[in-house]
Amino acid sequence: MIRTLIVDDEAPARAKLRLWLRDQPDIEIAQECSDGVAAAHAIMTGSPDLVFLDIQMPGLSGMEVAAQLDPATAPLLVFVTAFDAHAVAAFDMEAVDYVLKPYDKSRFRRALDRVRARLDRRDVSGAVLVARRQTGPSSRLLVPEGEGLRLIDCVSIHALEADDNYVNVHTAKRTYMLRRTLQDLLLQLGDGQFIRIHKSAAVNISEIDTLTPLFKGDYEVRLRSGRCLRLSRRYTENLFSRTGR
């Protein structure tokens, strides 16, 4: 069974998807959401196989939701949109499935056929990367908080530290644990604000306070918050070229 999530802020649009998905023997509707953050939460907690994702929604748009996902674990996304000239132009049928509103049953069936073929091939991560290209570096990051999710501004992040399968996201107030790889998180956040200083750490450039040389070309990076991290020799050149030293 394909566990499916329906995301649209307009009730009639959800109703139509629900109606037609119910007819499909291999589809099971897991949940319905009416905004972006709820959708991201449902995806991260419920791990559906397939998501029908509206693009224009309050809070986080469908594109932004997709950009926040981990390509390794993301479900297959089918964008359902009325009109997003830029997005649609960027969509490449090979990489991303989308349906334009209003759609008829044959269009809908075609989309489902592609979905099934893709699921068979386990070829599902394309949409996340396309969405990230569309939205550019995320300026807000969805982090788990209690039972739910919270959107934090990326400028408020001081440092990112990898820890096994998790990344610790340090802000002034607290640390959030994200089940992502550091590499993928840095891809999502872009390299404008964050810079890698170690195999397992990255910092917000504007938070760097001092650099103190250590042995063997390593440095100690002291952040304004007082937190100290190690700058490994491999990343010094990269950092100095960015900070102009």
């Binding site: 009639p12 649009a13 139509k16 109606l19 009325a82 009109f83 509103k101 209003p102 759609y103 008829d104």
Partner: peptide, 9 residues
């Protein structure tokens, strides 16, 4: 288009 989709639904 959203209105048309509403009608369609």
């Amino acid at each position: 288009f959203n209105t048309l989709n509403t009608v369609s639904s």
